[in-house]
Design a protein around this nucleic acid. Structure first.
Lengths: 133, 133
DNA sequence: CAGGATCCAGGATGATACTG
DNA sequence: CAGTATCATCCTGGATCCTG
């Protein structure tokens, strides 16, 4: 959806922004770095997102090849989302943005430093990112 | 505007996305890496942006300390925008996004590889970025 | 030239109800 | 559980006119 709809792709940076620049894309990808998750799990890990939005975001990410969707036809339906290699390859971008953000936030960010989940993921935990990058 | 309006800042990545994740922020910052530019120059270098938007984006970037606005009280009014150190410090983010985007675009991106300006800036020319980073 | 103010259409998103 | 569909709303951003 966000891909070639609005404007033709010009430079790689714009392209990247288009694919992961949304409000939730990066957080979602970050979450999945730790492994596959079910719809509900992702939903709960992202306080503030609506199911409708999450579905849309997941679809877009999938259509861009950043994650895969696997359906398990069980009684309580089960769908798992998992990063592709392309998805994992976003780690350096995380690192860069995390590093810059950390520096620039500095002062007022301490007490609210973790959002995405209770302690689920710091979005770009240097350790995690490095191990994956 | 984009700062603490919508949601409290949680993680550095979200913070970064908030500051430069828009449609034009990064392109603008990229342009200014080469030095100060006037309003009209930026406008012309970003085909598709409206003056109204550009003004808004510039204001936000300024309010976040990424660039400075200098007014020259000349007859034909002259206003120049220039990156701050914080603005320049975004180079690594450029590089990361540029690198990922280049790889992931691959096939269909060749003939339209330059947008921002005629040849103004490739958004994150490795050479430029490295020299500044 | 640079930017403010206003009007307005369209997209993005929340809420709710329904389905396999 | 994991969606889909629809309605209502809100915000974004373009177009236009005005100012210093």
């Amino acid at each position: 959806m966000t891909t070639k709809k609005k404007y033709p792709h010009c430079c790689p940076v714009r392209y990247t922004l288009d694919l992961i620049g949304g409000k939730w894309k990066l957080p979602i990808v970050a979450l999945l770095r730790s492994g596959a998750l079910r719809f509900t799990e992702i939903e709960r890990a992202l306080p503030g997102i609506s199911a409708r939005m999450l579905i849309k975001e997941l679809k877009e990410l999938e259509s861009h090849g950043l994650l895969t969707r696997t359906v398990f036809a069980a009684v309580p339906l089960r769908v798992e989302y998992c990063l592709t290699d392309d998805g994992y390859s976003l780690c350096p971008v995380f690192q860069a943005m995390h590093a810059w953000g950390s520096t620039h936030m500095a002062s007022f960010a301490e007490e609210t430093a973790a959002c995405i989940g209770p302690k689920t993921v710091g979005l770009a935990e240097p350790t995690e990112a490095q191990k994956l990058g």
